[in-house]
């Protein structure tokens, strides 16, 4: 399982990276692996606000669909158009090319509510048991 040391994580297997005032968001290597081949991505429109925990879109494989959850409250500022046409990059490169969207957090202090890389690894290990 790959992990990005610069990112923070959610219990629902998404990652967030701070890049200036915007935070970049995607799903983890662990998540892409358990979903298997992703065939479709449903992303929100730019400018849409979401509360923490709200479903902002979904990923689909052939036999499963998984909601994408907003890690902290904020407003979508940019979506990755490339993943819509080539969802396979989420499988091959979830932390970089496979990013899903950038949002502006309502409260940048919420960063501290997210899991550290070590805590996330521990979570995955415990779920694997």
């Amino acid at each position: 399982m790959k992990i990005d040391e610069k990112a923070r994580y959610t219990r629902s297997h998404e990652w967030v990276r701070q890049e200036g005032t915007l935070w970049t968001y995607g799903i983890t290597d662990h998540a892409q692996e358990s979903l298997s081949d992703i065939v479709y991505v449903e992303l929100p429109g730019v400018g849409e606000p979401f509360k923490q925990g709200a479903a902002l879109g979904a990923l689909e494989s052939v036999k499963a669909a998984s909601d994408l959850l907003m890690p902290v409250s904020g407003t979508v500022r940019e979506v990755n158009e490339d993943v819509a046409s080539s969802p396979e990059v989420i499988n091959s490169d979830p932390f970089n090319q496979g990013w899903l969207l950038k949002f502006e957090p309502e409260n940048p202090g919420d960063w501290e509510t997210l899991l550290s890389p070590a805590d996330y690894e521990a979570l995955c290990a415990s779920e694997g048991e």
């Binding site: 479709y40 052939v62 669909a65």
Partner: peptide
Amino acid sequence: LTTREQHIRREK
């Protein structure tokens, strides 16, 4: 495109 359907999405 079966993820639209009841046997996968259930209530959604």
